[in-house]
Write a protein that binds this DNA or RNA. Structure first.
Lengths: 340, 340
DNA sequence: AGTAATTTTGAATCGAAAA
DNA sequence: TTTTTCGATTCAAAATTAC
């Protein structure tokens, strides 16, 4: 980080080692062994060593961050209090602590504590008086026209999104879900901004930044991780510029359409067709649509192209799939089931 | 706190000043003024002063806490990182960080941040190796037979629960909901335990502790708050004792397997089958099992035949009876009932 | 080939009593 | 104080195998 020019970065997303301090092995009730995070990079001699490490990288981060930039740091109860205190000590100003609530956390197999079902993110500006970016309207749109809260419900990264190594096993032990980074980046940056991730790992930050038309810088010392990340990001397509500019307001159903984009069920720039194939529209990153002549919510654009007073966009718009049209409501139901 | 005997308290619930550092007045969009927390007790000169205050009261708390007791501290992003770091520095061992998600938080009127919709609680034991109370089954029952997670959805305190002062205005600016304390106390204490709240305020901890049959100690320096709290607690009725006792499975008296043979519930030489019918073993007169290749306790042989690191023999081994497999745990329960 | 059942897995600080 | 034994304990979702 010290090789980068001072004040050159708009946003930092950092996922530092958590210093888990695991003791012995842990087995599930069915006797299978939990594949724990026991990598060398998560080992520190004691709290003091972790504090020094935190001080060093946060100081370096502060230097490269623009005065009006913001920093996000994610962690668990093992490390987040050390990080939070150090951020305050260095003069950062906490804007929010945001809770990532996991839909599918690992259970507590021994029944000795509450299921550890969340992680904490700290969002800070460089000082109390700096002017940070916050795309309030985009967040509100993404949350069914209600203010976005400080607790976010998002599944852990699994399935096809999880990067595999050459051996077919998980490529990185702590890969974060793209939906999480999507919301972070849409909330706190503008297209063209520079996003820095000093603990790049599997490159989730770079992949999402690229898709959303933000520049990215990733720092990583493990060559294996670098290779995986670069291959991954090479496959990502940047969404069209128009899809990335943010629009505001409007009514939407209980599952906001934007969530489908955020969760990767639909990509920014994806083309939707009306059920009768007469009209098409493209999906933008904030969950609005844009057609030849109109832009707005799925309902508004659906109504506008028909010249109708109203329209249920969930039934009107479809995804062309293998020659068949699948109503976007189908995806809403998938997500609704998932979020239960 | 220093007047209390050392090691005399089973649980501490602490709701210290948050050091909110509010700047000017805040108005809602309709121009009404938000009734902020601007009391003298929430004013500190700087972070250093807040840290010294935190160090002092946490040190005192540590002294009065039993070695196997636990402490809960609630806070927001303004202070929780200072508190969490200090807890760790003093040797406390974090068991969970629990998120209180508010169903009805105050909106962010300026639209500059995410709605601050949660507060954080830290639950710590006195050291890594201490044995704290956790009523796992009670929590699981309370959560529809799923493990209780670290994020709790509970409304803020309002309506008739909110204590009013003599002037009819709110009696205490940061009164916590009784539902929150209910879950904390049921989770981490037993009936008859002593609960200490060093920042008693409106006395929520005392009220809930009394109803749940726990003893309580409240420390408060504001005489107005003391008066309100005592009046409030006087109205509370302790629930019936039978409603408060919880019999956890792991606290039931132990029944050696040999007793089943001794009492004639199983005959020496009886053949047991594993629940999946893959293995068999014979019962010996001393209460050990013998299989084709292994001999030892029900647990040891169960583990050995599976090649597993451990096994609960009570659930693994069954008695074939009329074509059905009856777990030997059934006979243990019969004997347990008989022994009363 | 399609559906149902089974197995696998995820940032985890995950015992206590008796000998 | 240390070692051995007892025996309690999991949820959601994807991947794999069985039917």
């Amino acid at each position: 980080m010290n090789a980068l020019p001072a004040g050159s970065v708009d946003m930092i997303f950092a996922d530092p080692p958590y210093n888990l301090q695991l003791q012995g092995d842990l087995h599930r009730p069915n006797n299978s062994k939990v594949d724990a995070v026991d990598d060398a990079w998560d080992k520190f001699d004691d709290l003091g060593a972790y504090d020094r490490f935190t001080h060093e990288w946060l100081s370096a981060a502060r230097r490269v961050l623009k005065d009006d930039g913001t920093i996000w740091v994610i962690g668990s109860y093992h490390n987040i209090f050390r990080v939070g205190s150090k951020l305050q000590d260095l003069g950062f100003w906490v804007l929010n602590d945001v809770i990532w609530r996991k839909t599918n956390p690992m259970p507590n197999f021994r029944g000795r504590r509450f299921t550890n079902a969340h992680e904490t993110m700290l969002w800070c500006s460089k000082s109390k008086d700096s002017q940070n970016t916050f795309n309030y309207e985009a967040m509100k749109t993404l949350n069914d026209d209600l203010q976005m809260r400080s607790d976010w419900l998002i599944p852990i990264c699994s399935g096809s999104e999880r990067i595999k190594g050459d051996d077919g096993r998980k490529g990185h032990p702590t890969q974060k879900p793209e939906a999480l980074l999507h919301r972070v980046i849409v909330a706190a940056t503008k297209p063209g901004d520079v996003v820095l991730d000093p603990f790049f790992g599997s490159g989730t930050t770079g992949a999402v930044a690229k898709r959303l038309g933000r520049h990215w810088i990733g720092l990583e010392r493990d060559k294996g991780y670098i290779k995986l990340a670069l291959e991954r990001i090479a496959k990502v397509q940047k969404a069209e510029t128009e899809m990335l500019t943010i629009q505001a307001k409007r009514e939407e159903p209980r599952i906001p359409f934007g969530w489908l984009v955020e969760r990767g069920l639909l990509q920014p720039g994806a083309v939707l067709e009306s059920f009768n194939r007469r009209w098409t529209a493209k999906v933008r990153s904030d969950g609005t649509l844009i057609s030849a002549e109109h832009r707005g919510s799925i309902h508004q654009v659906g109504a506008a192209v028909q010249g109708a007073p109203a329209c249920n966009g969930w039934q009107f718009w479809c995804v062309p799939k293998d020659g068949v049209l699948v109503p976007i409501d189908h995806y809403r139901q998938l997500l609704r089931a998932e979020l239960h």
